[in-house]
Design a protein around this nucleic acid. Structure first.
Length: 276
DNA sequence: TACCAGGTCTGAC
DNA sequence: GTCAGACATGGT
């Protein structure tokens, strides 16, 4: 095991994990256990620092996973300067959030499950999929399950996903798993964001909002701006918005925040949801 | 108990 | 292209 120590001002484990971008983590007494793909780490505060404890060979993986090569100060500044007090306040509240670099396939399945669903339930369903199909691993002296390989997911029937609690999304999971098993995600990574979004929405169960989440959290496209029910509330109540069409609301925020939109969207989402 | 949740799909117009 | 209604299920 190795401990990597970072400044904690723009790296708060709780805000980063609880802000709704990731579903596989557990709160422990001293910190948080985080699972990504088939890997695991433990992240916790130590005074003003944030510490990531991982296997030595995974240190670089989690450096990238937590986006630690990026300076977040200019992003928070951009939010503060946009002219809307709500954005400045949200950036203060969520300043410890980092936008994770998650596995593309895990992100696709996770956000298909997220539609019209509660975050605690999304977490429970994903946990069941991992327990049923993920490879068993050890981290320290505790066991965990990896996120299932796409080939394992593609081998399951729609009934399996229903039994796991996916609800009407079972069909989307089965169809997208089969398609992803054939096509993979390699050809997506190099695409510009609009083309990526278009390719993602071709998957069963992926509409514009889920595609934006996948683009942001699975491909680190920080120009993507997912608009869900919470962001709609923010838009109406804090930005005085009148538009109804989510596509147009997304375009409005993209214009306002540019390439920083993804980060600031997460500040706004977390702030609105935590302080409702 | 109702309403709601990080929406998408389908069919009608 | 736009829009209403259906969709599973459990949290709050």
């Amino acid at each position: 095991m190795i401990e990597s120590i970072y400044d904690g001002e723009f790296f708060d484990p709780e805000a980063t994990l609880a802000c709704g971008q990731v579903f596989r983590w557990e709160r422990k007494a001293e910190g948080f256990r985080v699972y990504a793909g088939d890997k695991a780490c433990f992240v916790f505060r130590r005074g003003s620092k944030t510490v990531v404890r991982s296997r030595e060979e995974d240190e670089e993986y989690f450096f990238n996973y937590f986006d630690l090569g990026r300076d977040y100060a200019p992003i928070a500044a951009r939010a503060a300067e946009c002219g809307f007090p709500a954005a400045a306040e949200a950036a203060r509240f969520g300043r410890g959030i980092r936008i994770l670099n998650q596995e593309p396939e895990e992100t696709i399945f996770s956000f298909i499950l997220s539609q019209n669903n509660h975050i605690p339930r999304i977490r429970a369903v994903i946990g069941r999929l991992c327990a049923a199909l993920g490879e068993k691993r050890d981290f320290g002296n505790e066991a965990y399950c990896a996120f299932p390989k796409t080939s394992a997911l593609a081998a399951q029937s729609e009934a399996f996903y229903r039994d796991a609690g996916c609800g009407y999304r079972a069909k989307y999971m089965a169809e997208t798993a089969r398609r992803l098993a054939k096509e993979g995600t390699e050809s997506l990574a190099a695409l510009p964001t609009p083309a990526l979004r278009e390719r993602l929405t071709a998957f069963s169960g992926v509409g514009p909002k889920v595609a934006d989440c996948i683009a942001l959290f699975g491909f680190h496209r920080t120009d993507a701006f997912p608009v869900d029910t919470w962001i709609e509330k923010v838009y109406r109540e804090e930005f005085g918005g009148k538009l109804k069409d989510r596509k147009k609301i997304a375009a409005y925020f993209a214009e306002l925040f540019g390439g920083c939109g993804g980060y600031i969207q997460q500040y706004l989402f977390y702030s609105k949801r935590e302080r409702r």
